[in-house]
Design a protein around this nucleic acid. Structure first.
Lengths: 148, 148
DNA sequence: CCCTGAATCATCCGAACGGGCGACTGCGCG
DNA sequence: CGCGCAGTCGCCCGTTCGGATGATTCAGGG
């Protein structure tokens, strides 16, 4: 802002000097002093507005409205918890498919293995997660960050 | 803004008139005209700054910043979706309990009603949500914001 | 080489679930 | 009053699930 003050002073000085020069050459003898004063008033009003705005332009009031956006990101799996629970890759895979609402049969078809195998895996992962129903397993897995 | 213009004009007029009165009484003969002009300059600069700021002060810049807020806390239910799906209060309640991993029997005991009734409710809510397995219902309900 | 862990498949059984049906009650609305 | 809706309950039937147990195969480590 310091520079602007100097600039403003300089401009004002130049104008006043200019007016003074003009004053003795034309205006004083040709126009009444009210016009002289009016001119100065107009010029400095404009300058005042200009610099007033300029000095405060950056002072825009920034209203930050925080919109709560649900972003759970790309889902980062909690590898520690996975090891902690002791799930194998296959069990984890099947857990994910269970969480998608698939039946054991559908999972079996999807993975080209028997439904019985799915049941074995699911039983084991239920044990490891200490639950006894698939919905509970899904809920717990979500809490632990094992599935999205 | 119109009022301000009028006000500004009025203030300016009064000041000029005032200066004119003063002019013939004191200043012209006691002070050089530069001071007279400088006075006008200062006064109108201040006025310019004042009104310039005043007219543009309301220039608030509203920045809508979408902030990734982790709002798992309070959980605001999506009432629109609830009506859209057409679930009754009871069905919604039972849906929530299903999502907690409870069996039909457990839900019945918790609500002091028959397991058969739970089955009726769950069947109806499955229809309304267009699913045929409880895990699917839970998943869909979470997506729709019907349950935490 | 043997042992272990994993993945696979199987069988059995009881419990849980889903779907369908009928029925009764209580409440609000026209 | 009659009608419809929500809530309650019961029964039946077939499917799915969960639990238990056993077997086979295969890869990797001691």
């Amino acid at each position: 802002m310091g520079k602007q003050v100097v600039l403003y002073g300089a401009v004002g000085g130049v104008l006043i000097a200019l007016l003074k020069v003009i004053e003795y050459k034309h205006f004083v003898h040709e126009y009444p002093s009210e016009i002289y004063g009016g001119l100065i008033a107009v010029i400095f009003t404009v300058l005042g507005i200009y610099f007033g705005l300029r000095w405060t332009r950056a002072k825009e009031v920034v209203v930050i409205r925080e919109v709560p956006v649900r972003m759970d990101g790309p889902f980062v799996m909690n590898a520690e918890k996975l090891k902690e629970v002791g799930l194998t890759a296959r069990e984890h895979e099947i857990l994910a498919l269970i969480a998608q609402g698939l039946s054991n049969r559908e999972i079996g078809e999807k993975l080209f293995i028997s439904e019985n195998t799915i049941k074995t895996h699911s039983s084991r992962l239920f044990e490891k997660m200490q639950v006894n129903r698939r919905v509970q397993a899904v809920q717990k897995a979500k809490d632990l960050g094992l599935i999205p």
